[in-house]
Design a protein around this nucleic acid. Structure first.
Lengths: 85, 85, 85, 85
DNA sequence: ACACAAAGTTCGCGTC
DNA sequence: GACGCGAACTTTGTGT
């Protein structure tokens, strides 16, 4: 990495390129999502409610995962498991 | 949409499913990006600096686009271009 | 606000002072919370689990509020209420 | 703590209650701070700049404390002070 | 103004 | 007991 004239620069370029590529794809998806909402609105759905439904479903899933986690945590605390794999 | 017993529900399901699918993909990309940063860190790069580089490049690109836009605008104003189709 | 030599400066001082005062109090509370965790650890409790319990309880409360909200939203959407007050 | 049927549960309840109480107060303060910013904005101040001012002042204070600490350290090392407190 | 997403900072733990 | 790592919390910026 101290070799600033050599391999490090190539590595840096590669890293930046990969990140930019991924971020670009992410932006595309964000756009797609917006379009779905817009289309739904065109079909008479209320975007605000749609967003809330999506959010609620995400929360419910998160809650489920969280509960599993805490169960695992307790089981470990009680010595019922040795290590998380 | 008032037809709550029929097609609207199917539509709603479809919309929510599409959004959730896209958001999931977006999450995957966010994870991938984090992994690239983590890998870079493992190779001795400073994540904070990497983020700054990426941010700067995005800004520069935005500025370049901005300039192109303004240039186009002027050229149109001067009658040097016809309207873009 | 353009009157930089006069009232605006006093206002600015007052604003900054109020914020700093509040942040100081906030920091004190954060310290207190840490101390409770530390004390609990001294009594054989697992900090990680404690944090998770607290988080979970907060989520559950948030979920309850969220559901009420969405209920209201639907009722409005169905024309059962006129305006949110 | 292994006495899950007895005192530990009371202790746990007490711990969680204390934390939740403190966090609630902390939330109130956070809200108050936001309100001060909002009010300032209403009086024509730029929130972003205000935040920067507050941040800078905090840094400066931290630096001052740091210097005092180092000074104390040196003075101790030179035997110019006895141990504090 | 509110909620979401991203970034930065801090904290707790395992290791040496 | 100090240091680094990984995770959690906080804060900042953005979009609706």
């Amino acid at each position: 990495m101290a070799d600033t004239g050599g391999i490090a620069q190539d590595q840096l370029r590669s890293i930046v390129a990969r990140i930019e590529r991924l971020e670009e794809e992410k932006t595309v998806l964000a756009t797609d999502i917006k379009e779905v909402y817009a289309e739904a609105k065109g079909n008479g759905f209320d975007i605000k409610i749609l967003r809330k439904i999506v959010r609620l479903r995400k929360q419910e899933q998160a809650e489920r995962l969280e509960e599993e986690e805490i169960t695992d945590l307790y089981m470990h605390a009680l010595g019922m498991l040795t290590t998380p794999e």
